[in-house]
């Protein structure tokens, strides 16, 4: 029983981690918490669903096509909505993303309706049984995809010039500009990339939560919690945070009671932040003068 709960928890946790990656990416470059991240993911999942059902494209073709659209969509959101308020206080920008969250949800409801629909899984639905523990190919797939994406972006930030430019932009826009970094285009691209990450997350999460305009509601909150638990600036932290939350939730639901699982999860987060305010893998924020 415990083994199966842990596997189930890891599976749920990878979903949270996957959804958290896009949040962290934007936060790392622009200090903005993008509340609309989950709803952008949902919109892209709907677009992918439209490719699948209306134009009857194969799964991976519609997957890739919708990611291309995601990139353009993410950049457009930055250009149209975020750019004009770039110089405004961070809080105003965050509130704007909250507004986008409501707009996207409403728009999706108008276009696709609110009745939930099933979404196909990435790989054929097969599962293995090993010493009484069941695990599906898709659970492994989600975990692998999340890890690869995390590692990829981790290395990208550490070792590429663009990564460096992104980090620099987050530190100080004016200085970064003086160093010859096109800060605006860095921001635009970051939004494009995190929309892609959101799209991947949405498409992989939809078979579990089903597809409707509210699909990212609960996952979005847990992703946010995962990001905070891991330290909001750390990509590996998102995975650690996500998996921890998933497993802890499962154990509480299995051995204590399922009503209390969210309560315990957030109690755990408070405890961790009390001991280590920057989160498990978060870097200490120091302002150099």
């Amino acid at each position: 029983m415990a083994g199966q709960i842990i596997i189930g928890g890891l599976a749920a946790g990878s979903l949270y981690a996957l959804a958290a990656l896009g949040l962290i990416l934007i936060f790392k470059t622009s200090d903005i918490v993008n509340f609309a991240q989950g709803e952008m993911a949902m919109l892209i999942t709907f677009i992918s669903f439209t490719f699948l059902t209306v134009t009857k494209l194969p799964y991976f073709v519609s997957f890739l096509l919708s990611l291309v659209i995601a990139f353009i969509f993410g950049m457009a959101v930055e250009r149209i909505f975020m750019r004009p308020v770039q110089k405004a206080p961070i809080l105003n920008q965050i509130i704007l993303t909250f507004g986008l969250y409501m707009v996207f949800r409403g728009v999706a409801g108008i276009i696709w309706g609110y009745t939930p629909v099933g979404f196909p899984e990435a790989l054929p639905n097969k599962h293995f049984n090993y010493v009484g523990i069941t695990i599906t190919i898709n659970q492994i797939f989600i975990f692998v995809v999340t890890t690869i994406l995390m590692l990829g972006f981790y290395l990208f930030f550490k070792h590429t010039k663009i990564g460096l430019a992104m980090r620099a932009s987050s530190q100080n826009i004016a200085t970064a500009k003086l160093m010859g970094i096109g800060v605006s285009s860095v921001f635009t691209r970051t939004w494009g990339i995190s929309a892609i990450l959101g799209g991947i997350a949405g498409i992989l999460i939809a078979p579990v939560t089903f597809l409707d305009p509210n699909m990212m509601g609960e996952v979005g909150i847990k992703a946010f919690a995962a990001a905070i638990l891991g330290g909001f600036t750390s990509l590996p932290g998102a995975i650690v945070g996500g998996l921890l939350i998933g497993v802890f939730e499962g154990l509480i639901a299995g051995y204590v009671s399922s009503e209390l699982k969210s309560v315990f999860v957030f109690a755990l987060i408070i405890l961790v932040l009390y001991v280590k305010p920057t989160g498990i893998l978060g870097e200490k924020i120091t302002k150099k003068v």
Binding site: I5, G8, A11, A12, V208, G217, E218, V219, G254, S258
Partner: peptide, 11 residues
Amino acid sequence: TDVDFSAQALS
């Protein structure tokens, strides 16, 4: 609002 029901299914 729950999304994961593996623990309940298992029990």
